[in-house]
């Protein structure tokens, strides 16, 4: 909405809310970027920076909640303003969760690097990280530009993240069956992949909420979900039989 409110301090409050959300989003992007780099370069120092960085995201979320509640109480927003306030609250929650997953990812990177554990599949995992990063960036763009079409694109891109999760699940399971020495590291890598898969779901929800904020309607089409790992069984026989 370009038109400003007759009461300009209302517009100021709404701008503050948006700015807090974009700051949060920027930090989450940064956290995931650093975690990815730490994974790529086995950089424990960088992983530790990510561990510390999460607090700032939580602080921003608290600040955003306060601002949103203040707007609801004092301005009684309606229509597009109401949708913006309520959706910003929900989107901030998702961002905070994505931040938590980035932190957990960094913690696992620190653990496997320290133990010099097995790190096969890292390049696939890095690709998955980059995919989620680009989803976050586009989702934030869609939010700040009020671009429902871009949000729709983001929602559908989650399917590729899911597919990559399937691939990694199979790949890592195979490594573990090949050699017991691989198990410890592979489990951590698998759980990092799971973190990324969950991040993708949160970002897809952010995109959906952005669409509602912009159009006032929830997208009717179901997005395709590609995560099949909950149905996968790979036995030793499958590998030996090859």
């Amino acid at each position: 909405m370009n038109e400003t409110h007759i009461v300009s301090s209302f517009t100021d409050d709404m701008n503050e809310l948006e700015s807090l959300l974009l700051q949060m989003g920027g930090l989450v992007e940064e956290q995931l970027k650093n975690a990815t780099l730490a994974l790529k370069k086995s950089d424990r120092e960088l992983a530790k920076t990510v561990l510390k960085g999460d607090e700032r995201i939580n602080d921003l979320e608290a600040q955003l909640n306060e601002t949103a509640i203040k707007i609801l109480a004092l301005r009684q927003p309606v229509a597009v303003d109401l949708r913006s306030v309520v959706m910003s609250l929900k989107i901030a929650r998702h961002l905070e969760r994505v931040g938590d997953y980035a932190k957990n990812t960094a913690r696992r990177i620190n653990t496997i690097t320290k133990a010099s554990a097995f790190t096969g599949s890292v390049s696939t995992l890095v690709r998955m990280c980059e995919m989620v990063q680009s989803m976050i960036k586009s989702a934030l763009d869609a939010y700040s530009k009020r671009d429902s079409n871009l949000a729709e694109e983001v929602r559908h891109n989650d399917e590729y993240v899911d597919q990559m999760h399937n691939t990694l699940f199979r790949e890592l399971l195979t490594y573990m069956m090949e050699d017991q020495q691989h198990i410890s590291g592979s489990i951590h890598l698998l759980l990092i992949a799971k973190n990324l898969e969950r991040m993708g779901d949160h970002v897809a929800d952010i995109a959906k909420e952005t669409q509602y904020m912009v159009t006032g309607e929830w997208p009717e089409n179901q997005r395709n979900k590609g995560d099949n790992t909950s149905k996968m069984i790979i036995d030793l026989v499958d590998i030996e039989g090859k």
Partner: peptide
């Protein structure tokens, strides 16, 4: 009307905007 008005004039009026 108060969550998703169809018309911009309505939206501007109920949300206190200059139309």
């Amino acid at each position: 009307i108060f969550t998703n008005p169809a018309n911009t004039l309505t939206q501007n009026y109920i949300s206190g905007r200059i139309g």
